[in-house]
Design a binder for these strands. Structure first.
Lengths: 230, 230
DNA sequence: TCAGCATGTGTTGCATGCAATACTGCAGTC
DNA sequence: GACTGCAGTATTGCATGCAACACATGCTGA
């Protein structure tokens, strides 16, 4: 075991630090709107500025930060409207995926999805919100992947990652959470029966109600923050 | 006037070199599949390796190159199937845009589109293929922009840029070219009448026939190249 | 003849130092 | 009291050098 504070020896330093900073942003550790100081991160992650600055360029491309020349990187601030715009795009992308997935999904893919769904249901029973959330995201990505269109998978993954943080608030309400699990079961069933048009509508409804719940949770949260700080 | 071979003083060197390399790729100067040597580009563009490597990270994010650790950057090779996959995504994105654009387009945006369309028609009359191509791309982007969804605009722009090179072949055939201009006129007309559903179908048909033409041209081109080289 | 290996060359990954730019605080003026 | 001008400081942008890695070539032994 090495005595370093972090253990960057997994691929290039650049890739490592990109993942680290990405996690810091999506977890909220780096607050939206805050400026990112290179020196601070460099010392914390035990790397030099070069790979960090490369990471910045990647994260800017992913829409997670903005870089102003000579004035540093700041974490992107997404308004509720911005997130809603992205959700609409994601719904649109899944609509495209739905019909294709119903046609093209392989049996192996369907089995993998069933397996993921069972694990997700178990996470729900255990009340393991984080684990549930990740499995949920994975399932949606796999449905899109089943459409066998790499461009679609890539775009969906990137857009999904951008707003991941904001969708986390969706399942705070136990009732909504239970319904989401049930919707998923029906969605996979419909995919297995390869009913593309129906699948499309179910996914759309699923996302709209999920986002509705997340939106209410976020707005309440923002209200509290607005009162608390300033 | 400076006596440098190139004039990089426009924003940061990093931004400059990114645009340069992007142009080299979309113009085909850097051939798909070929490895990009850092030293060669560095000397040609009169900059150091640091901004070039940052540019590589950006272009990798845009899907124009791939970087293998310790083994350099290579220009991405897109098969006809890859391009077709992207086109399907673009059609899907424009479908989402169509209904929203019909609802939300401002008068100013409609006027700007009409202006662009007139200039594009003039370019067609002049047989100015390059100019026509750019105006055409701009029009489609502006239609998407009119949907007033930034996420949609961003994703569309990025995906569109990725395969720009391949769509250029679409208007070699004079008959197809003339029809494309006419389709555009009707599309803008439909947008002005704010008939979203119809607009969606027209855009879809427009792209499918455009891509069909481009595809035939590309396949012929590939056949010739296959015979010529090797 | 050919697989396996050692060696050499070229290229990439990263750390560091310097120059240029943006930000901060303070003095001076109206 | 607010606003402008101006150092001083902090931070970023970039060039460069060194170390690590990948690839190519030739060599050895079977």
């Amino acid at each position: 075991m090495k005595d370093q504070t972090v253990e960057p020896r997994r691929g290039t330093r650049s890739a490592f630090v990109t993942q680290q900073v990405r996690d810091m942003i999506t977890s909220g550790e780096l607050e939206p709107g805050s400026r990112i100081n290179e020196r601070v991160l460099v010392e914390r992650l035990n790397i030099s500025r070069t790979p960090l600055r490369e990471a910045f360029k990647i994260l800017e491309g992913e829409g997670l930060i903005t870089i102003r020349p000579n004035a540093g990187a700041t974490v992107v601030v997404l308004s509720t409207e911005d997130v809603e715009a992205s959700i609409e795009v994601l719904i649109g992308l899944e609509s495209i995926a739905a019909e294709r997935a119903a046609r093209n999904a392989t049996e192996a893919e369907l089995d993998a999805l069933t397996d993921l769904h069972e694990r997700m249901t178990q996470a729900w029973r255990d009340g393991a919100l984080m684990s549930y959330f990740h499995l949920n995201q994975t399932i949606h990505q796999k449905i899109v992947d089943a459409a066998q269109n790499q461009a679609l998978s890539r775009v969906y993954a990137s857009e999904s990652a951008r707003i991941r943080r904001f969708r986390f608030a969706g399942n705070r309400d136990p009732e909504r959470w239970a319904r989401a699990v049930e919707e998923h079961a029906r969605i996979l069933d419909t995919l297995r029966r390869r009913e593309g048009a129906l699948l499309r509508e179910m996914l759309r409804a699923h996302h709209l109600s999920g986002w509705g719940a997340a939106r209410r949770a976020l707005e309440m949260q923002q209200e509290v923050e607005g009162r608390g700080e300033t």
